[in-house]
């Protein structure tokens, strides 16, 4: 097992290197470079000489691969450079915004689990009943409307009409409820559906029938056998969903005036702040890979067959 984890961890390095190179090259393909962007924002515009001077100051006159090399050399020493806009170290700036996003993502994850596990199980157990239909209706609706719309709807109903929760901004836990519900609602649908399908698929497998014949009670059969087989795809999906919760908060952050990393990224893209964008991509890439790995390990723990497939079992 330890060898397997180590092999997977080593596999992360080329993936990250490829990711950073690709994002670096793509960034430089985007029209308008940071020097021009900075001067464009300083409305009214500037001359070509001013752009050239700023380019040199920012080190943009060097060949792209040389720039990438410099960046990589520093990045492996955990120096992610300084923002071209604020002149602050990128690591420090990300550190300022990340807690808000982590807080939002974690509470959304909690809500997501609380919502999707019971609903998924219920709709499978009562397949075809009115309850199942209601849940399916909610699932399809939540998946069909954009999250900013859900956000506004929640603000309008809960905060403005009922006056139960604060409108926006970051503060105590009451500020968390609406934005994290909005985020959770957007991602709950696929999980609920996956869980439902998984349970339905395994419910009538011969080994479950055998368990039933052996007189194992309904809840125990569900908990110990059906769920155990139905969960792995849900866990894999969850791993990716957590990544999305972290990286997909931009719109929710904007609607709820949440000072998170998503808004920081959007602003940095508008300003073509290369070091920030590059570090963000690397950070999110690493998170996705680690979450994926964690999900795989959990699946392996639940299902010995997947360990066999990966050659983990001796």
């Amino acid at each position: 097992m330890a060898g397997y984890v180590l092999r997977r961890l080593i596999g992360v390095i080329p993936v990250l290197a490829g990711l950073s190179l690709l994002s670096f090259l793509l960034l430089h393909l985007v029209p308008v470079d940071p020097a021009e962007a900075a001067l464009n924002l300083s409305n009214p515009g500037a001359s070509e000489e001013a752009v050239q001077a700023l380019r040199e100051e920012m080190g943009l006159h060097e060949p792209i691969l040389a720039q990438y090399g410099t960046w990589l050399y520093k990045a492996v020493q955990l120096d992610f450079g300084t923002s071209l806009v604020s002149h602050q170290p990128v690591g420090q700036e990300l550190g300022q915004y990340l807690p808000a996003t982590l807080q939002l993502a974690l509470s959304a994850l909690l809500l997501l689990l609380v919502m999707s596990l019971p609903l998924g199980i219920l709709s499978a157990v009562y397949k075809g009943s009115w309850l199942d239909r209601v849940i399916q209706f909610i699932v399809v609706s939540a998946a069909s409307v954009p999250s900013f719309w859900i956000g506004f709807l929640l603000i309008y109903l809960v905060s403005m009409q009922l006056n139960l929760l604060p409108l926006m901004g970051r503060g105590d836990w009451t500020h968390l409820v609406l934005p994290s519900s909005t985020l959770a609602l957007a991602y709950a649908s696929p999980l609920i559906r996956l869980l439902r399908t998984g349970i339905l698929e395994h419910q009538h497998q011969p080994y479950i029938q055998a368990a039933r014949l052996r007189g194992i009670s309904n809840p125990k059969r569900m908990g110990k056998y059906v769920l155990k087989s139905a969960l792995p795809p849900v866990i894999t999906a969850l791993g990716i969903t957590i990544g999305h919760l972290l990286a997909g908060t931009v719109i929710v952050e904007s609607v709820f005036a949440w000072p998170g990393v998503g808004r920081y990224l959007v602003e940095s893209v508008a300003n073509r702040d290369y070091p920030v964008i590059q570090s963000y991509v690397l950070l999110m890439g690493t998170m996705f890979i680690l979450l994926n790995l964690a999900a795989d390990l959990m699946c392996a723990a639940l299902d010995p067959r997947s360990r066999l497939k990966e050659g983990v079992l001796p």
Binding site: N163, L164, D172
Partner: peptide
């Protein structure tokens, strides 16, 4: 399970109205 969901929702609502004055207009 259903009860649990219902309770969670209820708890959420009640406690949020408790915390309401802080976040109010």
């Amino acid at each position: 399970l259903m009860l649990l969901v219902a309770m969670m929702t209820a708890v959420g609502c009640v406690s949020s109205s408790d915390g309401q004055p802080k976040g109010k207009s």
